[in-house]
């Protein structure tokens, strides 16, 4: 799956690319905003992320140009979170609208939803670390040919830890990550989920996969 990012702010472009590459997307972008719509179309991207404030022409213009020759899904990303911009974006053919500062996970979820509707869903989004493979679409972990299904919260926890492999993730950040997907769990529920996740990991032969750093958080 290929994303084309039309964004003139270099740090945002860089971080978005970095973020989506973790989830198995190919990202392309360009610094040449003269003819950015044609560049985006020529790249053969499956989805285009589009900022509104651009040099030479605004994002609305770019979106119109894209729509003249293609039905590729377009998500508008902007800091101008006025209702006018949102309506305008949707009216000229954008498929979704996300205002800054957006939650990257939410953005990812929306991209995946749009892609699956467009019929070109990723057949597998897979994270791999230290011999463990997590399939995000099937909610399945595998190690040495053994597979196990995970519950939603357990997968959320493992996904967060695997995306940030090698880094300690504090407990409050894990709870927060689950809250962002509207699972308003508390400390006790997190404990239960961690115990269950450990058990599942042990069952496929990885008993010490999830490390506890006392007073700091968890780490894979």
């Amino acid at each position: 799956m290929k994303l084309f990012i039309i964004e003139d702010e270099v740090p945002i472009r860089k971080e978005l690319t970095h973020f989506f590459e973790k989830y198995g997307f190919q990202c392309e972008s360009s610094d040449d905003f003269h003819d950015i719509a044609q560049l985006a179309l020529a790249s053969g991207a499956d989805l285009i992320l589009l900022d509104i404030n651009l040099p030479y022409q605004d994002g609305f213009q770019v979106c119109r140009e894209i729509r003249q020759s293609s039905h590729v899904p377009v998500i508008v990303l902007t800091s101008r979170n006025t209702d006018f911009d949102e309506l305008m974006s949707l009216n000229i053919g954008a498929d979704d609208f996300v205002s800054k500062p957006y939650n990257a996970q939410v953005l990812l979820a929306r991209i995946q939803k749009l892609l699956s509707r467009a019929g070109g869903a990723q057949d597998s989004v897979v994270l791999t670390h230290k011999g463990l493979t997590l399939n995000l679409l099937k909610a399945e972990i595998s190690h040495n040919g053994q597979n196990k299904k995970l519950k939603k919260n357990e997968m959320g926890i493992l996904r967060l830890l695997m995306v940030n492999k090698g880094n300690i993730i504090p407990r409050d950040a894990i709870i927060d990550d689950l809250w962002q997907s509207e699972e308003f769990i508390d400390e006790n529920t997190l404990n239960v989920n961690i115990v269950r996740l450990r058990k599942t990991l042990a069952e496929i032969g990885l008993p010490d996969y999830l490390e506890t750093k006392r007073g700091l958080g968890y780490l894979v």
Binding site: I12, E15, L16, K22, A104, L160, V163, P170, A173
Partner: peptide, 9 residues
Amino acid sequence: LIIENHKNP
């Protein structure tokens, strides 16, 4: 976004 890509305490 930078933090999203580099999460640590």
